[in-house]
Each structure stands twice: as structure tokens, then as C-alpha cells.
Design a binder for these strands. Structure first.
Length: 425
RNA sequence: GUGAGUGUAGCCCAGUGGUCUAAGGCGCCAGGUUGUGGCCCUGGAGAUCGAGGGUUCAAAUCCCUCCACUCACCCCA
């Protein structure tokens, strides 16, 4: 018999960790409601071409990280490696261009990338993301960035920094890349092996090399923000103005570039102080060309995504208290066959009136049932045995004080309320 | 895809060739109170020692391969 394990890079979310997931999802939903974002969920897989065209042929995601397979009908499909391209596909497919613009949506969804797993890096991970489609203004950039920041604030995460940059548009970026190449060309001998490859393949990525020799060169390299065309410069400046108005602190990090090809103008990342080598818990940027690249009319847009597993790592790291997951706090114990049936009736009645409870295990001693109640952190035990059957009564025992009293069966629901049972706590 | 480290019950771990039919702690189950939890005492269940192969009279222990986890690189959430 083979022993089955969760596949590499995947993880079970167990009940003991569920409170963190509930916390992250409830914060994100409440926040999005306040910001006027509607929920969207796209399929877990899409036509492969959506990603190769949208994310970019040359990116690591497309080149070596996608879960691509052929279905029985011969179509090439890919497990969603990121959330933005599918949302744009849905925007086009459902004619959302004819809704009032911009369209604001958010999602909570798994993403799949075939990578070497590490702490904070899974083959299946979950993202909270939001996208605003159909508005090119810097005001919307500021909105998305402040939503992202608020999200982490409300979660209770501290010691985060917001990194911001502008990488220009189709008009000014080619010129910037030439400037960058011209800067690196005479220094090519000093570059590390990886950077020699980047020089040819994706010069922008030269900027975020971690080799110390390259770092120095990157620090002193020409900055994209200094090479922006007038429109991009204006956009970047007004964004910074809005962020100042919102009281958001940001570091303009000229070496911030991102690994997906579709970004234009604004890019940003939110980084925790440090959790291993995973330095980003959320990031995003503007992607004004993506929608036309996948077949829509030219439509500006901006988005943001955060990794839920990484958020949870940081919540634990920072000892953030999250609300407990609501759970039954009453156990109905019973001894004897007759009492068992009665216990089940009581149990059903409580459930019907919305009072959470669990029923004691059949065939276990009263002692065992009480021990179980204690181990499960129950607040209250209702005891029904032959004696109570005789008297049409039940015993209600408060496990915290150790006191109990016998009451008339019909008064049970009232009595439980009188004990101020907190069934959610 | 590259490099390094680790792998003994649900969890933490002892054990570095024979005394290991693998020890201890937490947790779980049960008894001590034949209708009462927590503390205490006692007992029990639970391990093909990550998997497969090899060396040896003898392997948890040495060697090889694979798998997984962790860390770093790469990249990203």
C-alpha cells in the first residue's frame, strides 16, 4: 500500500489554523465592501495562451513554472499561476467595458506555480487580489495602494514598508532600457553570470540582483523615474501627491521592477521587516496594455495581490491575536439507552434554535464524556441519565465554575441563555 | 533548475554497528470514584526508525539511489 501525502509544495489547512484564514478572508471582504469592490472568481484553469500572452513569454512564470496539461479534448490548459490575466479575460468576455467605469473587483483564490518549495513559497498558494479596470488616472493608483496598505493595517501587521517606483510606458521605457544598457555595457566584465544573461534577456532585472558587486552598480545605475516621458512623470508625481495626502509613507525604490511583463508606469511592493528570504507579502502595479494584449480594446488598469500564506507567517511571527473560530461550547452527555434518545432530542432542539452543541459519544462513561468536554474546551455540559429521565429534568453543569444544577427539561434553553453561553467565542 | 543541511509514534525528541522485540516527554484512550472533567497516581494504544537497494554473522546506526522537509540561489505572493 502506498502512503499518500499531500503533493510537494501543497499543504492542508487544518482546523487549528483556520482562525488565521477566517481572519484574512473576513478582513479582505469587509475592506473591499467599504471600497466598493465586487467579488469575482474565475476558473482555476484557463487556456494556456492567456498566460503566455498576458504574463509574457519571457517570464519565469511562463517559461518554467506553469502547470500546463492537455485535457481529453486536446486543449492546452494551465492552472492559474496568477490572478490578473483571468480577471481581464472575464472583463472582456462579459462586456464589462459597458459597465460604469472603472470596474472594481477582488478575488480570493489559489494560484499554482511549479517551483522549489520553501517557507513562504508553495506550489499551491492563495492570493487576495483586487483590480480596477478602465481608469488611467493616478487617483486610482492611489486608491489601490491605500486599499492594499489598509488591508495590512487592519490585519494587524506592523513594521511594513511600501516600495514604489514607475517603470514608464511603451513610449519611454525602450529609451530607458537603452540608457540602462549603455550604462552596463562598459561594466559587463564585472557582472555576475546571472546578470550577463539578464543583460540580454531582461535588462530591467539587472537592477534587483543580490550580488554585492552588482548591487553597487545597480544602485548607481540610471533610474527609470528620471527617464519618464512627460505624461508618465506627471502621473508619477500626482500619485506621490495623493499618497502624501493620504498620509502614506513610501520609499521610492528605483531598483523595484517586477517579474511580470505586463506592468507599466506604477509598480509597488509591500515588504515585512523580514521573514526568511521572502521579502514581499503583497505587490502590484499598473498594466495599461494587458487587456489589448489578450484581445480587448485598449483599457488601462491597475491591480494588487497579496499572498495569504505569507501573511499568516507574518501574523504568527508578529504574534498578532486573531479572533477564534466560532465553535460549539456545550456538550450533551448521556448515560443509558433511553437517555441517549432523549439527549439526541434535546440536542436537535438546541440546534434548531441556533444554540451550538455537540453530542456525547455513544457507549462512553459519563466520566469519559466530561473529560472529552474538558479537552474540547466546552463551557457547559448538559447531563441526562436515568435519574433525569424519571424526573423529566436535566443537569446543567458549568465547567468553569464546577457548579451544576438540576432543572426542568423545558427550561433548558432559557437556562443556557441565562448562563450567557458565548457560542461564538 | 543549482548548492547546503535534515528525516526515529499525531507533536518534541534519546539512541552513531550487537544490551533496540527502539527510551523519555506532550497529546490521545482507560482505570483509580459502578452518575461527574481539570490536578495527581497507574495502565494502554500508537513506530514497516522517510522509501528502496547494498555492506556485514549483525544496520535506526555504515554506503548508494530515490523521496520529502528546511535554508540559500533563482523568482515571486
Amino acid at each position: 500500500m502506498p502512503v499518500f501525502k499531500a503533493p510537494r509544495g501543497t499543504r492542508d489547512i487544518l482546523p487549528e489554523e483556520a482562525c488565521y484564514w477566517d481572519w484574512v478572508t473576513s478582513v479582505s471582504k469587509n475592506l473591499c465592501r467599504n471600497y466598493g469592490y465586487g467579488r469575482i472568481e474565475t476558473p482555476m484553469f484557463e487556456a494556456t495562451g492567456l498566460f503566455s500572452r498576458g504574463v509574457g513569454e519571457g517570464t519565469d512564470i511562463v517559461e518554467k513554472e506553469m502547470y500546463t496539461f492537455e485535457d481529453r479534448g486536446g486543449s492546452s490548459l494551465t492552472l492559474r499561476p496568477e490572478g490578473t490575466a483571468p480577471v481581464c479575460r472575464a472583463y472582456i468576455e462579459h462586456g464589462m467595458a459597458s459597465l460604469p467605469q472603472p470596474v472594481r473587483v477582488y478575488y480570493l483564490a489559489p494560484a499554482f506555480r511549479y517551483e522549489r518549495p520553501q517557507a513562504g513559497r508553495m506550489r499551491q498558494h492563495h492570493q487576495f487580489g483586487c483590480e480596477v479596470i478602465g481608469d488611467a488616472s493616478a487617483l486610482i493608483d492611489a486608491e489601490v495602494i491605500s486599499l492594499a496598505w489598509q488591508f495590512f493595517e487592519k490585519l494587524g501587521l506592523r513594521k511594513l514598508t511600501l516600495k514604489l517606483n514607475s517603470i514608464g510606458c511603451d513610449k519611454c521605457r525602450p529609451g530607458y532600457i537603452e540608457t540602462l544598457k549603455a550604462y552596463y555595457e562598459p561594466r559587463i566584465e564585472k557582472l555576475c553570470d546571472d546578470c550577463a544573461v539578464r543583460m540580454k534577456k531582461n535588462p530591467l532585472r539587472l537592477l534587483d540582483c543580490k550580488e554585492s558587486a552588482c548591487q553597487y552598480m545597480a544602485d548607481n545605475a540610471p533610474r527609470s523615474a528620471d527617464c519618464l516621458c512627460p505624461e508618465c512623470l506627471e502621473h508619477f508625481n500626482s500619485l506621490k501627491g495623493y499618497l502624501d495626502l493620504a498620509g502614506l509613507e513610501y520609499d521610492v525604490t528605483h531598483r523595484l521592477v517586477r517579474g511580470l511583463d505586463y506592468y507599466t508606469r506604477t509598480v509597488f511592493e509591500i515588504q515585512p521587516e523580514s521573514t526568511g528570504s521572502q521579502s514581499t507579502i503583497g505587490g502590484g502595479g499598473r498594466y495599461d496594455r494587458l487587456i489589448e494584449q489578450i484581445g480587448g480594446r485598449p483599457t488601462p488598469a491597475i491591480g494588487f495581490a497579496a499572498g495569504i500564506e505569507r501573511i499568516i507567517l507574518n501574523l504568527k511571527d508578529q504574534n498578532v491575536c486573531v479572533p477564534g473560530t466560532g465553535s460549539a461550547r456545550i456538550l450533551i452527555a448521556h448515560t443509558g439507552e433511553e437517555a441517549r434518545s432523549e439527549a439526541f432530542s434535546v440536542y436537535s432542539a438546541l440546534q434548531c434554535s441556533g444554540i451550538g452543541a455537540i453530542i456525547g459519544a455513544e457507549g462512553k462513561s459519563l466520566k469519559a464524556q466530561l473529560r472529552q468536554a474538558n479537552n474540547l474546551d466546552m463551557k457547559m455540559v448538559v447531563i441526562i441519565g436515568p435519574e433525569e429521565m424519571e424526573e423529566e429534568a436535566v443537569v446543567v453543569r458549568d465547567l468553569e465554575t464546577g457548579t451544576q444544577k438540576k432543572i426542568d427539561r423545558r427550561l433548558l434553553a432559557d437556562a443556557l441563555s441565562a448562563f450567557r453561553i458565548n457560542i461564538s467565542g
